[in-house]
Design a protein around this nucleic acid. Structure first.
Length: 476
DNA sequence: TGGGGTTAT
DNA sequence: ATAACCC
């Protein structure tokens, strides 16, 4: 009995609603009579709420979108190119040795028949990405995006609801959809197993809907938290799904060859841990927490230590509409203010279209640059400022030139960062609109609350079509 | 390494 | 404003 408590992560304290849902599910199980033992087994863990989370991960997303756009590309090895990189490729190409983020030359060398399409314009990918998120939101509104091609959904409530609607004699007939991690045996007397199996059925329905309605395939992983759901979703790879039962949690986490494979332990932390002689999950699990806290800070140390045990109490946070819109362009060299201005104008023109279609208004604009350095890692600098309110007003309207004041503003930010009287060498420019507000919230008073609250709730997809009066941009 | 995103400090 | 993380 204690063992069960250990293998469940101690998720954040269950709220009242969770506990109520628990009690109802347990009542149903109890009614099954022969399943009476479930009570004794599960009740001790009730105070630590147990969730059912699915991680949905589209297969080579950009390549799939391209194949839908142009079906001739199906059954051919396809790569999506950004600058000199193949950022992703379909499975035909992978069979022939092409990898993600491979140099175009290396990819062509490995696979001369490789077909390449340019994927620098993310518009269609972004649109399809939000269609996926919105489809998943139909199942449960609690959907968190991770990049363009991954989503987490908290299925806990949906699972409880389905269990409540099951007849007691149907409980023992619940089946899994897809793979069970580690081929672990299912115990239908274990309510945790039952819940996760119902989660696997919902995951299958989600993948079916994605395929039928959007033509997209993907993987899904079902587990009791985001970390485990994400790790398990990748176990069977294209277009399959896997559920993790609690007893195989340690097996999963120890199947990782290196701590850098744990989501949440990134480049910097990995470097830091390497210096401490930590490279395997076991190394991290058994390392002194005090020393770790001193090296990484208490926050990171405690979080990654828990991650190493497969524990992750972070909630699925509904993403809602985006917090920012940005467009960037990288290049070999930009060394004149004139050229920078031209590039900034292009970025801005696309952004204004996007912001306009969103309907909300950005109140802040930011300019980001990357300076050339012989072979150092990134290092970006940025300057931001509020957007003057008279410019904000014109943003949605489509008439009058909002380009000119915005370009002027951005060039001021540019000159604030770059001393244009000295030689410079930039390799990236990016413009970002952020601090998005629902309406012109400049007014104060009781109405303000209602105005902002309602339109933030709306689902996110392209509304409001609009044509720019501004010149040039996407001539080709 | 691209062209995006997020949150924490 | 930067730095870390994610894809």
């Amino acid at each position: 009995m204690e063992k069960l408590g250990v293998e469940l992560e101690e998720e954040g304290c269950g709220n009242e609603e969770d506990d109520e849902a628990w009690a109802m599910a347990l009542a149903d199980v109890g009614a099954a009579g022969s399943l009476q033992g479930v009570h004794d087994q599960v009740l001790p863990t009730q105070n630590s709420s147990s969730r059912v989370i699915v991680h949905v991960d589209l297969d080579c997303f950009y390549a799939q979108v391209e194949m839908i756009s142009n079906p001739e590309l199906k059954d051919k090895p396809l790569g999506v190119q950004q600058k000199y990189l193949v950022v992703t490729c379909n499975y035909e190409a992978r069979k022939l040795g092409v990898k993600k983020l491979m140099n175009v030359r290396a990819a062509k060398e490995k696979c001369p028949q490789l077909v390449l399409v340019n994927g620098e314009d993310l518009t269609r990918y972004r649109e399809m990405s939000y269609k996926v998120t919105e489809l998943l939101e139909e199942f449960s509104p609690v959907v968190e995006r991770l990049g363009f091609d991954e989503n987490f959904v908290d299925l806990t409530e949906m699972v409880e609801k389905r269990l409540r609607q099951l007849q007691s004699d149907e409980l023992s007939a619940v089946t899994v959809s897809g793979h069970v991690y580690n081929n672990q045996s299912i115990n239908l007397h274990d309510i945790l197993h039952i819940r996760l199996l119902v989660g696997s059925q919902i995951a299958a329905e989600m993948r079916e809907a994605m395929y039928n309605r959007l033509g997209l395939t993907g993987c899904a992983g079902v587990a009791s938290n985001k970390l485990l759901a994400k790790l398990v979703s990748g176990v069977f790879k294209p277009n399959q799904q896997t559920v993790l039962l609690p007893e195989s949690c340690q097996h999963l986490i120890h199947s990782l060859n290196h701590i850098k494979e744990i989501p949440g332990i990134g480049y910097k932390t990995t470097k830091c841990l390497e210096v401490l002689g930590i490279s395997s999950v076991h190394d991290l699990q058994t390392f002194s927490s005090k020393i770790l806290e001193k090296e990484l800070g208490i926050s990171v140390a405690q979080r990654i230590l828990k991650l190493s045990f497969g524990e992750d109490n972070s909630p699925v946070i509904p993403s809602g509409p985006p917090q920012s819109f940005s467009e960037e362009d990288s290049f070999k060299k930009c060394s004149s203010e004139i050229e920078a201005k031209k590039r900034i104008e292009e970025l801005l023109a696309s952004l204004l279209n996007r912001v306009c279609r969103d309907g909300r208004k950005p109140h802040t604009v930011r300019l980001i640059i990357r300076r050339y350095s012989p072979e150092k890692h990134c290092g970006r600098e940025s300057r931001q400022c509020p957007i003057p309110s008279h410019v904000i007003q014109k943003l949605g309207t489509g008439n009058y030139d909002v380009m000119t004041p915005m370009v002027d503003l951005l060039m001021k930010l540019f000159r604030n960062m770059v001393n244009v009287k000295m030689p410079f060498h930039l390799t990236l420019l990016s413009v970002c609109f952020c601090n998005l507000k629902a309406l012109n919230t400049a007014r104060k008073g009781p109405m303000d609350y209602y105005l902002t609250a309602s339109s933030t709730t709306a689902s996110y997809s392209g509304k409001r079509s609009f044509k720019m009066k501004d010149t040039h941009m996407e001539d080709f």
